[in-house]
Each structure stands twice: as C-alpha cells, then as structure tokens.
Design a protein around this nucleic acid. Structure first.
Length: 367
DNA sequence: AAGCCGGGGTT
DNA sequence: AACCCAGGCTT
C-alpha cells in the first residue's frame, strides 16, 4: 500500500480534521497565522501551557510586531518582556534568529521545514509546526501531546522518551499528514491531546478517533504512554546579600552563557550542608561584590524550585561600608552591576527567585 | 544517549 | 510531592 492509498484509507484523519474544525479554541495566534505569529507562539509554547503563553504572546507581538523590529531591539528588552516565562535561552535564540533572518534572508522567513530547522531555537518539532501551519507543508509536528495520542492510538508500549520511539511515530505519521490541510492535521492532534486525550483522565467518550484506538479498545489509556523514570532533584542552600547604600540596593547581571543568562540577581553564595553560618556570607563580600559591607540583619528565607534542583535562600540585609573604595575588578565589570532603588525594579529583568527576594524585602521593610 | 534549562497547572 | 507540558541545545 503506497502513501496515497493510506491517506485515502485513513478515516481517522477525516474525523480528526472535522473534530478540530468544530472544537478548536480561539487563540491569539490562530486569528492570523502569519509566519511571525506562528513562530513566536510555537517558541513560547515549548514546554509551556497555552493559558500561560497567551498574555506573554499578546505583549510580545505588540512590543515587537515584526522580525525587523525584533532584530533591531536590545536583547535585554526582549528578556524584560520574557521575564517570568522561563527557559530564557528561547528568548536569546529568538533574538538571534531574528538577526539571521534580517541579515541572511532579506527579512523573509525560510518556508520549508528543512530551512527553518537551521535557525537557532528551531528543532524538528517547531520546524514542522511552522512549516505546516504557516506555509502548508505536509510534514508532521511531533510534540509531547502527539506522542501521547499515538502511543495510545497505535498501542505503542515502547518507552516514549527514547529517540527511536519518537522517530518511529514521526515517520509513521508522515504517511498520514493531510496534503490538503497539514495545519489542521498537526494542530488537531495537539488540540486533541490538550482537550481530550489528556495525560490523566482522558475523555474518550468525546474522542473523534476512539474507533481504531488500541488503548481505548484494550483499556490501556492509564498505562500508555510508558515513560522513563525521572531521577530525583537535589536540594541546595544559598545565602543572598541585599546590600543597601542609602536608598539603593546592589544587583548584578548574569553572563549570557550561564543559567538564567542576562537576568539580574543579588549577590549569593552556595552554602555546604553543615556550614550554614553567616561566615559564608562574608565570602560574598570578598569574592563577588568586591567591596566591603556589613551584615545588619536577616530578612528571612525563600524557596524556589527549578527544573533540576531546588533551593532555599536565606536573605541577609547588609550595608555598604562608606569610605571603602570600589575595587578595580568591580569597576571593569560595571556594565554588569548596578545600584537601584526598589522602584526601579520594573526596568530590570529578574528571575523568579530574585523577585521573591524583592517581595520579601518589601514585606519586611513595610512592617 | 543523557543532562541541562523555568515555571506553572494538575492530580 | 510528583507529574506533565505545542522542545532544543550541549556534551
């Protein structure tokens, strides 16, 4: 059976397309699926749920309506709009890719999945999504939803995280992508995964393709897909210093090649278990801020969970020692440090943990 | 192939 | 608290 016969035979594809046409949600990037809108939305939707993305998308395209306006913007302004959305490499790659499109493609989007995947931040999934939704190319777009839907539909019990399993599903799916409506095909699968074929408690009664679904027929929706067990996340203890000089606090910007690159933070130090004394805070003064300060109090503690570890941060109040010179090494990195008042916080992109510290400062100083 | 990268919603 | 999410990049 060749691909054409397969597509004609696949009644589930027709039912999926009909279901999507009737049940799709109204979303900001669907009203006008221009390459730029589709691209921005697909990057934001990586590992991030629709409801979280909507307000960020609205703000982003209002602030940066076109590729050229995005490429002509300072990365720090892009990060500021991205603040709180997470996975900040996405914002840095978005900005980088906008530069590539402006400089190497005359400002015109590459139109094929193969060309799109050459841009920074665009992998196999996103290339397929943009190519199919914005340009009508009949290629699959295999994301987490899609893997779950077809592990169930085809009764695949191989571990879903394995690249081999993903490639098996992707190539098999390539034989079914609707030539007439690849956009509806891919979005229909993802919408089905989000609304009906959910991770837990799938609503099989409403599923347009339950007929022919292996998991539904054999009552395996609770077992499929099979996932690789995840390793536990370690816990770290940190001390942070909020150093005041008159009515301003000292902050520093992370390098772009480190975690949370480009985002601002307070000086901090990792504390080894059993060494949780305020002496550790002295190391911050010596090694990071390169000027003298003295501890004048303790604000309290905040907790934060990252992807691969958790932190507890004890926050100390400090005061700049007047009369001590700012060292030469600090002066050299002056673009990466600043004294700011709490009112100016809005102008700097901070990570979530730092924002929690700022909330803590405000609540303590207020009382 | 495995590890790294945020944050929020759901159960 | 564990699991999941419209993944991609680095090693």
């Amino acid at each position: 059976m060749n691909d054409l016969d397969k597509k004609q035979d696949a009644a589930w594809v027709r039912r999926l397309l009909e279901w999507y046409d009737t049940n799709k949600r109204i979303l900001p990037w669907r009203s006008s699926p221009t390459p730029y809108f589709v691209w921005i939305s697909e990057i934001m939707l990586q590992q991030t749920q629709v409801d979280t993305v909507i307000p960020y998308f609205e703000r982003f395209v209002q602030r940066f309506p076109t590729v050229s306006e995005l490429s002509g913007t300072d990365i720090e302004d892009v990060l500021k709009v991205w603040q709180g959305l997470g996975y900040y490499a996405r914002a840095r790659n978005l900005h980088k890719a906008a530069g590539v499109i402006s400089d190497n493609h005359n400002g015109i989007f590459p139109e094929s999945a193969v060309e799109l995947q050459k841009l920074p931040g665009i992998g196999e999934y996103t290339a397929g999504a943009v190519a199919s939704i914005a340009f009508g190319e009949a290629v699959p777009a295999v994301d987490g939803n899609c893997l779950r839907v077809f592990a169930r539909f085809w009764g695949i019990s191989d571990v879903i995280d394995e690249p081999k399993t993903k490639e098996c599903i992707r190539s098999r799916l390539a034989g079914y992508v609707s030539e007439g409506n690849p956009s509806g095909f891919n979005q229909g699968i993802m919408e089905l995964g989000a609304l009906v074929c959910r991770p837990t408690n799938p609503d099989c009664g409403q599923c347009p393709i339950k007929s022919g679904c292996m998991a539904y027929e054999k009552s395996l929706t609770a077992v499929l897909p099979v996932r690789k067990p995840k390793s536990s996340v370690p816990h770290r203890t940190l001390f942070a210093a909020v150093v005041w000089r008159d009515d301003k606090v000292f902050v520093m910007r992370r390098e772009y090649d480190e975690m949370l690159g480009g985002l601002w933070r307070f000086p901090n130090v990792t504390v080894k278990p059993g060494d949780e004394t305020s002496e550790s805070l002295g190391k911050i003064v010596e090694e990071q801020i390169s000027f003298r300060a003295r501890i004048t109090g303790k604000y309290g503690q905040i907790n934060h969970a990252y992807t691969h570890f958790k932190v507890s941060i004890t926050v100390f109040r400090c005061e700049f020692n007047e009369g001590t010179a700012i060292s030469s090494e600090l002066r050299e990195t002056l673009v990466n440090v600043a004294w700011i008042s709490l009112e100016d916080v809005e102008e700097y992109p901070f990570d979530k943990a730092s924002l929690k510290i700022i909330d803590l400062i405000r609540s303590v100083d207020f009382s």
